[in-house]
Write a protein that binds this DNA or RNA. Structure first.
Lengths: 104, 104
DNA sequence: TGTATATTTAGACAAATATCGAAATAAAAG
DNA sequence: CTTTTATTTCGATATTTGTCTAAATATACA
């Protein structure tokens, strides 16, 4: 319960971080491997990792010198559930074409 | 195809804007009505409206002096679809407990 | 212990963002 | 045409964000 989604949506707002998540979906990777795939510096990536960790979107595991990052899909699902809730609150009847409720 | 989701996720990153979307889900409202529900100034709200419009998350309709805002649920659905794609790319079998990738 | 490799932290800086009050625009009403 | 009401645009400002280089920490290994 009590999912503080602010950090999750903040984390998802950056394209680099979304790309990291997508990459991690295909399998856990070390920080260095991820860094080698992006055109930004390792400290910058580390900064993004911190934001993803703060949002609980990724988990880390030390393996020798390496730190392995892996995806936490549960939080991603919760974020989706919250989006679902926005456009159909507590009900499954989503009316895609939101007709004009003429109330004054 | 070709959904430029950057502005959508940026728009969803702000709690005020998510609250606006949630409010609009319950029915279209004029700018003034929405503004009266939030503790920030009307120019600030107008700024948020612009961001939501740029992301195509809301539509507007002039009605006399008022401007009526309504939700565009389709774009919200597309954002969810993209989240879905992050944690299970092109497949529907979502494994909630992402154990250490025994897939290739 | 000392050196190499992997990753993070510290500090700085430019760009983006959220906010405001004041002024501008648009439509309605007198 | 002037005033009133609704909303946006303008200009300013403080905070947050993404990025960098340099330095620090942590582990492995000779």
């Amino acid at each position: 319960m009590s999912s503080p989604q602010q950090p999750v949506f903040k984390a998802l707002a950056d394209p680099t971080r979304r790309a990291i998540l997508k990459r991690l979906q295909e399998g856990s990777e070390t920080a260095g491997e991820i860094a080698s795939e992006f055109p930004i510096s390792k400290p910058s990536l580390s900064h993004h990792f911190n934001i993803l960790k703060a949002a609980d979107l990724v988990r880390t595991e030390r393996r020798g010198q390496h730190i392995v990052y892996s995806l936490n899909a549960t939080v991603l699902q919760e974020a989706m559930a919250m989006l679902l809730d926005i456009f159909s609150p507590g009900d499954s009847s989503q009316d895609q074409d939101n007709e004009e409720s003429e109330r004054e």
